[in-house]
Design a binder for these strands. Structure first.
Lengths: 118, 118
DNA sequence: CGTTCATATTGATGGTTGTCGATGTATTGA
DNA sequence: TCAATACATCGACAACCATCAATATGAACG
């Protein structure tokens, strides 16, 4: 195991290696991949990712996302923070509004790890 | 929404529909997909899936899986049950031993939903 | 039968997480 | 400078979850 691998972020880890079904996942790699899966493993967050990804221009304003759920604004803000900190959503502030965009490359890397189609 | 869609299991749900990034995921579909992601979103379970998938013949005995972790036997048994009930692992009893095998089709369907490469 | 071995179940416990109301921060416009 | 709007943070609480020790189940073998 290289030293650089020890310092990989979750996003870097998921992008760098063989799919699940090829060879056993090490504990270290599992620990770095799991935050991404945990971030997706919530119905609200999964829908948030989907709504943002399917939006015009691939990004969505928080104000629109709030309206899409029957949840308080702090709760949506919390979920967006989780997705952002996991590396799945980019965050851009324009004026008073905040826009989130899906990192499709990360999503694709997670998919490759799980499905091993590549 | 058809009546049959209402009765889909998580595994059926994830196999039937467009990827995340194509169109917004409904709350119903999210609720049925999330159990699969939750099952994978644990470092021990992710490694279990990987170890089983990478094993000879695509299956592994529980006794071998126990040895691969520094955890109690009931804990491994619990994680295997979660993966089995989510539909990710098949379970076969032969004599005293129990073998688990990964359902690669389910894994591939989850990957397609996430990555949208198809 | 009774023992041994492989696996599952139960019950308890400490830690994590989703949610909310209240409050804070920052930007815009009057 | 004041008010309004958009979003984030804080603190609290209930629900969930990973883990273990103890125990149960069940198959193979003397």
């Amino acid at each position: 195991m290289s030293k650089s691998e020890l310092t990989l972020t979750p996003v870097e880890t998921v992008a760098c290696c063989s799919p699940l079904v090829r060879e056993p996942l090490s504990a270290d790699r599992a620990d770095r991949v799991v935050p991404l899966l945990k971030a997706l493993a919530d119905p609200v967050r999964l829908r948030l990712v989907s709504i943002v990804a399917a939006s015009e221009g691939g990004e969505a304003c928080v104000c629109d996302l709030n309206d899409a759920f029957d949840l308080s604004q702090p709760t949506i803000s919390h979920h967006l923070k989780v997705l952002h900190e996991a590396g799945l959503l980019d965050r851009t502030k324009r004026g008073v509004w905040v826009y989130y965009a899906v990192r499709r490359d990360v999503l694709a890397d997670v998919a490759t790890l799980i499905g091993g189609s590549a």
